[in-house]
Simulated scan of single mutants.
Amino acid sequence: MRIRRVITTRDGGSSAAPFDSFNLGGSVGDDVAALAANRRKLAEGIGLAEHRLVWMEQIHGRTATVVDEPRSEAVEATDALVTATPNLALVALVADCVPVLLGDPTSGVVAAVHAGRVGARVGVLVSALSRMRDAGAQLDRVEALIGPAACGECYEVPREMQSDVEEHLPGSACKTRKGTPGLDLRAGLWEQLAGAGVAKIGVDPRCTLESTELYSHRGESGRTGRFAAVVWAEPEEDGA
């Protein structure tokens, strides 16, 4: 199998401000027709039928759900999706939280994870890896991409919160650019992946608070769109 991954930006869509313009989030207050057009464009852009994109009703929890066929509605109350079905694209929506895209090219098992501060703290990535293993993946074959998110230099939090997250997600505590307590969730998640035996880990270094091509919930006072992190397994052509 070939593992395919896509990270969208906020450019090139149909949504008006403050969701301009390629918003893919369905619960932010965007125009319904604009959202539908954007989701159609995403499907066309990655070369899959629109119904083969599976979305989540993300709630900042630790639940990881296995899906084996298209869904007409977003999967309820989950923050990670896992599948072994080829050409079934799993979507995580983010705007400061960390998207993690996982795939085992041998088994074809893939996962999309939405890891915000709360979800990362309570172990949503651990849940996803466990469900992947149950579905036939081997963690030492899994390739991971940690996507764009609020960086540690920008993500300021109270010291008590920093200490609490660090206790549950070691490696995440840091100092911000201002010298105040911060969180680098991507660093903590990287350590969690490495500790689980995942050998190939890539990181998209973009910060959502600094990059104008990405949405940021914190940077835009809570009223903004969501970009997507998408993963699917594509069968290789015979002889490839």
Rank of each mutant, 00 (worst) to 15 (best):
D11Q: 13
G12K: 10
S14Y: 13
S15P: 01
P18A: 08
P18I: 12
L24W: 10
D30R: 12
D31W: 05
A37L: 13
R39H: 12
R40G: 09
K41W: 06
K41L: 07
K41E: 03
A43L: 13
I46E: 00
G47C: 04
L48H: 11
L48C: 10
V54P: 02
W55T: 08
M56Q: 12
Q58C: 09
I59K: 05
G61H: 00
G61S: 01
R62S: 14
A64N: 07
E69F: 15
P70T: 10
A74H: 07
V75L: 12
A77W: 15
T78P: 03
A80G: 01
T83W: 02
A84Y: 10
P86V: 04
A89P: 00
L90K: 05
V91T: 10
A92H: 07
D96A: 04
D96S: 06
P99G: 03
P99R: 01
S107A: 04
V109S: 05
A112W: 02
A112S: 06
H114L: 12
R121P: 07
R121Y: 15
V124G: 00
L139R: 01
L139S: 01
A144K: 04
I146P: 00
G147C: 07
G152L: 09
C154G: 04
Y155E: 14
E156G: 08
P158C: 06
E160L: 15
Q162K: 03
V165A: 02
E166D: 05
E167Y: 11
K178N: 14
K178C: 11
D184I: 05
D184F: 02
D184T: 05
W190F: 13
G195T: 04
G197D: 08
G197P: 02
A199Y: 12
I201S: 01
D204K: 03
R206W: 01
C207P: 00
C207K: 00
C207D: 02
T208Y: 00
E210G: 05
Y215P: 00
H217D: 13
H217R: 15
G225R: 00
W232C: 00
P235V: 06
E236Q: 10
E237F: 15
D238G: 13
G239E: 03
